[in-house]
Each structure stands twice: as C-alpha cells, then as structure tokens.
Design a binder for these strands. Structure first.
Length: 308
DNA sequence: AAGACGAAAGTGGTTGA
DNA sequence: TCAACAACTTTCGTCTT
C-alpha cells in the first residue's frame, strides 16, 4: 500500500483494501474506490524462473512492452568505430547493414504499436500486468499477419480489451473506444477476430467485476454495493445471466440495490455509467423482480416512504 | 416537469441449414 | 451463403410521481 493513502477521504475509515491486480484501493467501510485505475507499483519478475534466486541480477526483466523485448543490441555505436582498424571497419559497416536489414517491417510496426498501446493503457490507467498481456497478444497478432487489412490502432485496442478481460479488470468497449479513438464496433470486430485466430479463450466477464467501479462513480455506499453483488449471485442461480450483457445485469443489480437502500439513482444515471440504455436496465430490472421475488421488498419501501 | 414504463422498429452478431 | 434469431439500442408515446 503506498504511503500517500492511509485514510478514506470519504468516511475517514482506515480499513482499506488494496487490490494490486486491479490498481484500486477500496474502502471496506464505505465502498469508495479511492485510487481507481492507479498504477501498479509492484515489479514484474515473472519472466524469470524462481529456482535460481540469483538470476534476477542478470538484467532488467524481459518485457513485451519494448518492441525488441528489451534485449536489443545496437551495432552502430560511434565510440566503437575508433577502436577498429581498416579491415575491421568494413566488417563493422557490413554488420550494421545486416542489422538494419533484420529490423524488418514487423519490428518497426511493433515499435509504433507499442507506443500507442502504452498511450491508451496509461490513459485508462490500466495495471502493468494488463499492459504486458496486451503487448504479448499484439506481438502474436503481428507475427501471424493479423494486422493486415486492419488499422494498427484497432488491433491495439482489441488486444487491450482482451487483456483486460483475461485479468478480470473488464473495461467496457465504450471506455476503450474513448481512449483509443476507434469505433466501438471496430474494436469489437478486431477483438473477436484476433482472439479467434490466436485461439485465446476468454470467459464471459463476470458482472460482479463491474460493480465496484460502477458503484463508485455513482457514489453508492458499501452496503448497497455488497447488496448488489448478493442480488447478482441470486440472479446467476436463477439463470438470468447467461446470454445477457454483463454490464446490463450489473447495472440493473445496482439500480435495485440502490432503491432498496434508499439511495435512489435514476435509470439514466445508472445507464450512463454502465454504458447501456435505460431500456436494458428496465428489462433486466423487471426480470430480477419477477424471478427473485423482490416485489415485496420494493413495496415495503414504497409504503415506508408514504408514511413520512 | 422529470422519471419510469413499454411498444415497435432497427442494428450487428451468431447459428444452423 | 442466407435466413432465423437473440440481445441490445433508438425512438416515441403514455403513465406516475
């Protein structure tokens, strides 16, 4: 936990939960997401085998976010020139030419793409692990020639979207779209294409993964939030969730939970943060009421309000 | 007047013949 | 490759608070 944040600015509670993977600090008392999208400060050593503890002294960790995996060697250093005699100097130029040739179109493409990837990733403040994963996916995509016929940016966005999903830090297509400037449709298309071609299996994202983020932007308290998750679990048991958009379900669960806790939000407000329409919320909401027998509770609430 | 509700038509994607 | 289909959106009129 970084030292900067010790208390929750909302309720003053010190019971904070730092979720490194998601880059979030969540107040257990009031549910406020204090440092959403915070960068992950932990180092990534996972490229190394842990059997040999000394190994980490061998250099910086290999990383996919450097276009040559951080292992590149420059042949063209000027200082070396003066150490060489005439013959060797020819050799030097030959080597340099060779080096130039192998820095193929692929590598140049990668260099550009990874710059773009970093840009978008930092705009969304995604954890390093996700950035790494998406860089890996993009690299594979380039090697398989999947970028041909598609814009580099859209493939980058697709890779990021996939990586987010794999790490259970889902971002909506809308968010990716805003960050990358690529149309939602296009991102979805390349995302599907790339994952299919690379044989990457991605489970449908869990609606619960969206709750914390949505609840935070709606400024709902922790009780409401955990209630929403509870509703979600019941919905899953009633098989209301399969085939539906996870964001819509999450939004509806939050909407109901907010009603039940007397922190009513309009359908529009909830719809906006979840990136769905009111109609979808209504449909999910209705299903929730039907299947989970929540009508009574809602009616109770209404009566309670009338009394006042 | 704003919010909630629901019907109807349209969109983009999946599936199965 | 095409048609049927499900989920979701857009739009719009009506009812409720």
């Amino acid at each position: 936990m970084p030292e900067l944040v010790k208390k929750c600015p909302e309720c003053g509670g010190i019971n904070l939960n730092w979720n490194k993977e998601r880059g979030e600090i969540i107040c257990r008392d009031c549910g406020l997401v204090i440092e959403e999208k915070m960068v992950d400060f932990t180092q990534e050593w996972r490229e190394f085998d842990s059997e040999d503890g000394e190994r980490r002294r061998a250099g910086a960790p290999m990383t996919y976010t450097q276009y040559d995996h951080g292992l590149g060697t420059e042949v063209g250093q000027k200082a070396d020139l003066f150490k060489l005699g005439g013959k060797d100097r020819n050799k030097f130029f030959r080597l340099r030419k060779w080096q130039y040739r192998i820095s193929t179109a692929i590598e140049r493409n990668l260099k550009l793409a990874l710059a773009e990837l970093k840009r978008v990733s930092s705009y969304l403040k995604l954890p390093k692990s996700v950035e790494e994963e998406s860089a890996r996916i993009y690299t594979l995509a380039v090697q398989r020639g999947l970028v041909r016929g598609r814009s580099m940016e859209s493939v980058v966005a697709g890779a990021l979207y996939a990586a987010c999903r794999r790490h259970d830090v889902p971002r909506t297509l809308d968010e990716l779209s805003e960050a990358s400037g690529i149309e939602k449709k296009e991102i979805g298309r390349t995302y599907r294409f790339v994952t299919r071609e690379l044989g990457i299996t991605i489970l449908p994202s869990n609606p619960a993964d969206y709750i914390a983020r949505f609840a935070s932007s709606l400024k709902l308290n922790a009780e409401t939030q955990s209630n929403a998750i509870e509703i979600l679990e019941r919905a899953q048991k009633a098989e209301l969730t399969s085939g539906r958009g996870p964001t819509g379900i999450a939004a509806a669960a939050l909407y109901v939970a907010a009603l039940l806790h007397g922190e009513k939000r309009t359908q529009r407000e909830v719809a906006d943060v979840a990136g769905v329409t009111e109609v979808t919320i209504r449909n999910r909401y209705k299903e929730l009421l039907d299947e989970l027998k929540l009508e009574k509770e809602i009616k109770k609430k209404k009566k309670a309000r009338k009394k006042r």
